[in-house]
Design a protein around this nucleic acid. Structure first.
Lengths: 132, 132, 132, 132
DNA sequence: GTGGTCTAGACCACC
DNA sequence: GTGGTCTAGACCACG
C-alpha cells in the first residue's frame, strides 16, 4: 500500500493518512489482521514527521480501526468494521462516485466540488436547526 | 440575508461566514454592488466578535468575492461572477443536492460525507497520476 | 483643473486630492489667490463624499497651502510655498523624473516601484537608527 | 536576520515586517526554503504582539512570498523568486538607491519623497491615458 | 457611520 | 515546539 499525501491541501496530514487507511479497510485492500508499516519506517517513506504518523495510528486505534500492539506493530481489526458503518458507506459510495464524476466532467475542480458539498451540508445543518 | 452559524461544528466560524456569503453570491441572493452588513453590526447580530467577522470579510476580499472600502463598507464584487464558474456551479448544484440529501438519509454524518467525497476526489486525481 | 482619483489604490482619497492640489501649486498650475472649487461642487464632479473633500481642504489649510474663507470659498495662499520646500522639491524633481522613467522602462509596475522606494526609505531610517 | 521597526511612523507594523521580509527575499538574504522565526519568538524579540507578527506572515503567504505550515513554521517560497521579477528589481535597485539617497541629502523627508514618486507615477499613468 | 490596527490572553490543532 | 482561532476592548483613520 502506498500513500498519496498533499501537505498543501489544507487537510491535516494525519487526517489524510487516516483517510487512506480507512479507505483501504473499507475497500478490502487492508484485511483483518494485516500489519501496517511501522511508524518510523512509514514516516521515512512518506517523508513526514513520525509524530504525525503516530497521531494517525493513535486516532485510528481510538476509532477502533486498528490495534497497536506494543513492540509488535499496528494491525487491522475487524471489530469496528461493523455492519452499520460499512453498510452506510457501501450504499453511499455509488452515489458519490456518480456525483463527483459528473461534477468533474462538468469542469469543477476539487476546490469547487468541496465548496458545493459544504454548501449542501450547511443547508442540511440548517434544516436540523443550528444555533443562530 | 441572515446567517446560521454553529460554533461547535469544528469548522471555524469565519469560514462558515465566508461559505455563506459565497453561497449567497453564487445563488444570486447577493448581487454585484450589494453592501454587506457592517462588521460590528453583523458581529452583534450573530453574537460573535467583530474581529471574527472582519477576518471573514478580509479573506473574502482576498479571494475576490467582495471589495472592502475603508470607511464605506463591504460590497459584492462582480468579478468572480463570471458566467463560466457560475454556470458550472449551477449545473452541478442539483447533483450534490441529491447526493448529499440521499447520503444524509442513509445516516451518514457530515464527517463521513466529506470523507466519501475526498475518497472520490483522490480516485480522480489518481487517474490523472498523482505524486507520492 | 481636473482630478484623477483611484479609490482602489490603497492611498486614501483625501490624500490623493491633497496630493494633486499640492502638485498643482508646486508646478504653478495653481497660483496664489486662485480659488479652488467648492466642496459640494467638487464632490459632485469627482463622485466622492463631500466629507472627503472637506477633509482634504481642512488638511491643506492646516499645512498652509490654502486658505478657507468662510462663505467665500478656498483660495491658494502664497505663504507656505516658501523657497525652502519649493526649492527642495524643484531640485529633487528631475531626480525622480529620471528614476521613475527608467524603472518604468525596465518594466517595473507602480507597485514594484513603490516597494523599491519603501525599501530604500527603510534603509535610510535604519541608518538614522530607528527603534529596534 | 534582525528587524527594525518604528511603531510611530504611521506605517502599520505588520507592513513594515512584510516589507523587510520581502526585501530580504529580493536581495537574497532569505533563500528558498529558509525558515522564518517563529511567530511568538519573533514577537518577543521585536517586543510586539504575536497577532501582529501572525498578520504579517499571513499576508506574506497570501502574496506568495512564504508558505506557512501549521505546526511546522513559516518558510520562504521559491515561487516569486522567478528570474523576471528578480532581475527587474536588481536592475532597478541602484537607480532608487541613488535617487532616494540624493533626495534625502537635499532634505526631503519620507513623506515628500513618496509624494514625489506618486506624482511621477501619475504622470506616467496619464501618458497612458487615465480615468476621471 | 464605516473599517483597520494593535494589544492581551485563552484555548485548540498540528508536527 | 509550531501556527490557528476567538475573545475583549482600546484607539485610529476614512467617508
Amino acid at each position: 500500500m502506498d500513500f498519496r499525501l498533499n501537505p498543501n491541501s489544507g487537510v491535516p496530514i494525519y487526517l489524510q493518512l487516516m483517510e487512506q487507511v480507512k479507505h483501504g479497510i473499507e475497500t478490502g485492500a487492508l484485511q483483518h489482521g494485516d500489519q501496517l508499516p511501522g511508524i518510523r519506517k512509514l514516516a521515512e517513506v512518506i517523508v513526514m514527521n513520525p509524530n504525525t504518523v503516530a497521531k494517525a495510528y493513535r486516532e485510528l486505534e481510538h476509532e477502533g480501526y486498528i490495534e497497536v500492539r506494543h513492540g509488535a506493530g499496528a494491525f487491522v481489526t475487524g471489530k469496528l468494521n461493523n455492519q452499520e458503518v460499512q453498510d452506510r458507506m457501501d450504499r453511499a459510495r455509488p452515489i458519490f462516485e456518480t456525483a463527483v464524476t459528473q461534477a468533474a466532467a462538468l469542469g469543477l475542480n476539487d476546490e469547487e466540488i468541496r465548496r458545493m458539498v459544504e454548501a449542501e451540508l450547511q443547508k442540511i445543518e440548517f434544516r436540523k436547526g443550528a444555533s443562530h
